[in-house]
């Protein structure tokens, strides 16, 4: 790609609306249009209940939009796909598998042989500093570490696109900051297209290239920010004037 070319479009939502049926029908998303380009780290930021999880689940292929359409690499999303790795909001580490078996699961599903699975999982587990826990069950891990295992479990299958749903939502502030550093480090090593959902403005600013702010339910795109902070970002970045200025703008957009 030459310098002038626009980056390739990976994910696209066109006028997506979603209504949960039931006794009281709830309109989660009104009309959302969103483009995610190749190697872009996009954060979708919004208050609790604004439909951001719904949007991510539509991209992941677990929900069909009520109106509009969603495409991945130019073709309509029909269901879960191997090019899209999805980390759920809930704890979804398999408690009956060891850390290694968890990380190897996606490779097992692809029919990769045991030796290659072992090599990949060792590498992934080393990346998050859990080599000592390879053969441990998840019950021995802290909440933050088991979430990182879920992240590398998805990374092990080397998807082009990562869909992350508030992976660090349930952690305390310090652990959360440490996990953000881990994720940023992983992302800088192997650039992927990332769609990251969060309700935490600072987290979005620290990690993303671009932030899309959603309105309260039913969700609409309210603002779109470019984050031009230098990488790798560090503690310095968190307390820089540029960071604070952007944070203020985002807070105002969140209203």
């Amino acid at each position: 790609m030459t310098a002038g070319d626009p980056p390739r479009l990976r994910l696209q939502a066109v006028d997506v609306g979603y209504t949960y049926s039931g006794r009281t029908a709830t309109q989660a998303l009104e009309t959302i249009s969103l483009d995610v380009h190749d190697s872009e780290f996009l954060a979708v930021l919004g208050p609790v209940g604004c439909g951001k999880t719904t949007l991510l689940r539509i991209f992941a292929g677990f929900l069909r939009p009520t109106t509009g359409s969603v495409a991945c690499d130019g073709s309509v999303v029909e269901g879960p796909g191997r090019e899209r790795g999805y980390v759920l909001q809930e704890d979804a580490i398999f408690p009956w598998m060891t850390v290694r078996e968890n990380v190897e699961f996606g490779l097992l599903a692809r029919g990769v042989d045991a030796a290659a699975r072992g090599a990949t999982s060792r590498e992934m587990i080393r990346l998050i500093g859990l080599s000592r826990f390879e053969e441990a069950y998840p019950k021995e891990l802290s909440a933050g570490m088991s979430k990182m295992v879920e992240v590398v479990r998805v990374l092990a299958t080397d998807p082009a696109i990562l869909l992350l749903d508030e992976p660090f939502g349930a952690l305390d502030a310090q652990t959360r900051a440490r996990m953000q550093d881990e994720l940023a480090r992983l992302w800088e090593r192997r650039r992927k297209t990332v769609l990251f959902v969060t309700h935490d403005a600072e987290e979005a600013l620290y990690l993303a290239d671009r932030i899309v702010v959603l309105s309260p339910r039913p969700g609409r795109v309210k603002a779109d920010f470019r984050v031009d902070l230098p990488r790798p970002r560090s503690l310095e970045a968190r307390f820089s004037p540029a960071f604070s200025a952007l944070k203020r703008q985002i807070w105002e957009a969140l209203g």
Binding site: A60, F62, P80, R82, R84, G85, Y86, L88, E90, D91, A92, F94, W96, M97, F105, G106, L108, A109, R110, E150, R153, V154, T157
Partner: peptide, 27 residues
């Protein structure tokens, strides 16, 4: 449901999901 969805997102076939997710979770 989260385990089944996570497995499906990781590319597990229904057979693999049954052996590696449903059975151990029900055990």
């Amino acid at each position: 449901r989260v385990y089944l969805e996570a497995a499906s997102a990781l590319g597990a076939s229904p057979g693999l999901a049954f052996r590696k997710i449903v059975l151990p979770a029900a055990s």
